[in-house]
Structures are given as structure tokens and as C-alpha cells.
Design a protein around this nucleic acid. Structure first.
Lengths: 257, 257
DNA sequence: CAAACCGTGACGTAGCGTGAATGTTC
DNA sequence: TGAACATTCACGCTACGTCACGGTTT
């Protein structure tokens, strides 16, 4: 009769089979995630078939991005909430991906700018990130918009290509830089140069609002409620009140004329 | 005459402006990334305008995903390789995003399977990840394909939608599961059931090769060179030689008939 | 006997969070 | 004088990598 082969593996071979290191096995042993089925007299670890399966499961869940603690929990036989955890984990990963995308877009924009312009400019770079962060926090910003405004924004978002987005980001960045230069040089808000800047500003704003008064209303509310912005919102010109004040004055002069 | 305002900030206020915590400032101080411009007699930190700029730069680069060590290096005035670092960092982030995408796809596929099937099945899950990992390591696998084969693969990749991909992943997963069941039950490779499995197998293979002999040649080389697969390649049935052996035999029987 | 394996510590990593114990400023 | 600041330790966390030192297997 055929004897069921015990098929025990030493650490090295066992680790190779699953694509992990021996140190990893030690670690999993210590934290109680995966213990050898037995030990030799000298204390060498021996793993069996069941351990192979378990290790594969562990590797699988690591790929999904679960922490070892979560994995230990999920592998308990009584545990039935894998479905729930999968959903949650997917949300988490999607969140991370949004951040990654934003970072990549920021770098790309910066590369384009430094490529055609001169040396890398920090202010420009930060402006870009402000804009991207803003786009990223769309959900939070929406609370400032009325129903009408939201519909209008959603409508315009439909034909909003990545190229358009990049273009827009670069424009805002360049404008921010120029305004900052103007303020530090002490340019008069009534001067022609300031008026040109104000023009570019309102053009860009219009590009976002689409001329819709409801959207502009929301935008105004958003900006005047500065003190309620989330603490981590470094992405708006709160650190540079000079620029927005400058634009405000320039716009007033334009209206007056 | 107007005196230039010193505008010094205490830790709390300074941190709030940049959206970081006081502890973070302590940390940056200790590792020499950002030191206060001065201290009060009691040792309280005081930060000036220049530090504001620097902190913003730090936050910006953190957003991009640079490590504090890299940031410290990049912020040295003599440093001129920002361009290079940006390019590298983008590559890194894109790599991470690929992994994230793969993980998300894996979860989605698993969710679909567990939704219509019964409880979550680990074997199925792992099969999915094998396939996804395989897709992910396209670059490495390409070395096994001839010029012709690569062109053919690239051609077919053009109309390769995510839906198709998901469908394909699920099919492979299901097939892998069924084969495993058959082997453990000791099904005869010559039996009708085994032939059905072999049929499904070759259909899926054909779906990838498109019937192109060059592609099939490469695939064969790839699979026969098992010992040179990267150590971390848990994504191929190396741990389950039984299944592939079973299919090999079943296919031979089919040829013979 | 030598090579190749095994074991157990124990420290290092990144970027802070979170106290604890204590002094300073308004 | 009390509240709200500030300071410096110092341990905790993730998932192992990387020695160091010494025993075991073949």
C-alpha cells in the first residue's frame, strides 16, 4: 500500500518555493503567523503541506496590501468577513492610487515647465501642486457649491481631457509666479501690468466657472471661508495672502474703469 | 522709514502655516533638515521667513514622494540635478502605480468571483494573482519571445480592454481550480473530463497566442526554462507541478487520438 | 574535514505618534 | 496663578535586512 508521503521541507527549500527569504520565515514564526509543523532534535524548522498552503495565502494577501496583522486575523478559520475586508482594502488602494496619480501629474507638469523654461523654480512647482491638490479634494470643495453649480461643474467635467488639465495647471502656476513677482516688486494694482495679470486671472477663473454665475458664487464662498479649510490644505494660497489681495485690488480698479 | 518686520514664528503657529505638526518640526530639527533661525533664552524655537519657504519646499517634495534624506540632498544650493531626480522619481511612482493597479484588479476579480460563486476560495484567488502578476512582468517575459512573436503580441495588445482582461483572468482562475480538483481526485488524463479541461486550456492559450506559432514557441520556451524564473515569481505554477503535468498528459492523449 | 546549511539574538531602517516629566509665557 | 504654550527624552510601529556567533547536516 502507498504510504502518504510526509514531504517535509527545511527552511531554505520551503522559502524558495514561495519566493520569500528564510528570515521572513523566522519573522512569521516569531510573530505567530506561520509556525513550522515540527522541529528536528537540533531545533531546525520543518514545514509540511499545510504550511505551504498557508504561506501562499500569506503571500497572496501581502500582494493585496494587507498588513501581517490583518492577514493573521483574516486567516483565522472562524473569520467570515473576507468580503468586507476586500472592499475596504480596495477603497484604501484606490485612495493611494489617486495620490500617486496626483504626484505623477505634478512631476510631469514640473518637467514640462523646467524643460522649456530655465532652471527649476520652486514657486512654480508649488503652484502646480496647489492646483493638483485642489483637483484632488474635489469632494470636500463641493460643499461650497449649490446644486446648480455642481451640475454645471459636472457638465463641464465631461470634456475635460488630461491635456487640458495639464495646460490649466501650467497656466495657473505661471500666473501665480508672475503675480508673486509683481507683488514683491511693489507693482501698483492700478498699473497696466497689474491689469494684464488680472485679465489672465479672470480668464482662468472663467475657464473653470464657464461663466456660470452659480459656480462663481460657490468659488467666492469657498475662498472667503478660508479659516474653515482643512488643516492639511497647504494647497491654497493661504500662505501668500499678498497675491490674492493684489489681484483683488487690481480687479477692483478694472471694474472702476 | 519702514523697518523690515522680523516676523518670527513660534513652533505652533509655524507648523500650522505649513500644515504639519510640531513634532514634525522637532524631527526635522533633529535630523538637520530644517533648523529654527534662532532660539529664545528659554530654548524655544523661532522660525523666520526663509524657514517658511524651506518648509514649503520640503512639504512639496514629500508630496512628490521623496524621502527626507533625498529632500535634504536636493535642497542643498549647489545641487543641480533636480531634473534627473524628478525623472527617476516619476519612474518609481509609475512602477508603484502598476503594482497598485494590479492589486486593485486582483481584488476586483476576487470580489466578482465571490459575489456570484459561494464563499471565497483561496485557490481561485491565488490563480487570479498569478495571472495578474504575469501580466505585470511582461518586460521580463518578453526575452523569451522572438521578434515576430513580440510584434504579434503587441498587435493583439492593442484591442485588449480591461473587461477582456478581467474575463481572461477569471477564466484562468476557474480553470486552474478545476484542474487542481481533477488531479487531487486522481482523474485519468485520458478521460473525457480531462479532455474537456485540456480543451479549455488550449482555448485560453490560443486566446493569448492568437494562433501565432512564433508566440506559441516563445511560450513553450518560457515554460520549459522554469529554473531561471526570478525567485520572486510565485505567480507561476511552479508550486503545483501536478496541474501542468496533468494537462501535458491530457494534451498528449488528445494529439494521439 | 569542509561546505552548506541551521539556529538565536540584536541592531537598523522611515517618519513621525504618543506619552511623560518639566519649564515658560501671557 | 492657571491655561496654553514650550522643551527634551524615549519607546512604539512595519516588515523584515543584515551582521555576529555558533551549532548541524552531509
Amino acid at each position: 500500500m502507498t504510504v502518504t508521503k510526509p514531504s517535509l521541507f527545511q527552511a531554505r527549500e520551503f522559502a524558495r518555493r514561495a519566493g520569500v527569504t528564510v528570515r521572513t520565515l523566522h519573522h512569521y514564526d516569531r510573530i505567530g503567523l506561520l509556525k513550522p509543523s515540527e522541529r528536528t532534535a537540533a531545533g531546525h524548522r520543518l514545514y509540511g503541506e499545510r504550511e505551504i498552503v498557508r504561506l501562499q495565502q500569506i503571500v497572496t494577501m501581502k500582494f493585496i496590501g494587507f498588513s501581517l496583522k490583518q492577514i493573521r486575523c483574516l486567516l483565522e478559520p472562524k473569520n467570515q468577513e473576507l468580503q468586507t475586508m476586500l472592499r475596504l482594502q480596495r477603497r484604501t488602494l484606490e485612495e493611494k492610487r489617486r495620490h500617486l496619480d496626483a504626484a505623477i501629474r505634478a512631476i510631469s507638469a514640473a518637467e514640462r515647465l523646467t524643460a522649456k523654461g530655465r532652471a527649476a523654480n520652486w514657486v512654480t512647482f508649488q503652484k502646480i501642486i496647489e492646483v493638483i491638490q485642489m483637483q484632488n479634494n474635489t469632494d470636500w470643495m463641493m460643499q461650497y457649491y449649490s446644486e446648480d453649480a455642481r451640475r454645471a461643474i459636472a457638465e463641464r467635467a465631461k470634456d475635460w481631457t488630461p491635456e487640458l488639465q495639464a495646460r490649466c495647471e501650467a497656466d495657473w502656476a505661471a500666473l501665480g509666479k508672475d503675480i508673486e513677482a509683481a507683488t514683491t516688486e511693489g507693482v501698483d494694482p492700478a498699473s497696466a501690468r497689474a491689469q494684464a495679470l488680472a485679465d489672465r486671472w479672470s480668464k482662468l477663473i472663467e475657464g473653470f466657472t464657464g461663466g456660470n454665475p452659480a459656480v462663481m458664487e460657490g468659488l467666492k464662498k469657498l475662498y472667503s471661508d478660508r479659516e474653515h479649510w482643512p488643516a492639511n490644505a497647504t494647497y491654497m494660497p493661504r500662505n501668500d495672502p499678498g497675491s490674492s489681495e493684489f489681484i483683488r485690488q487690481a480687479l477692483q480698479h478694472r471694474k472702476a474703469s
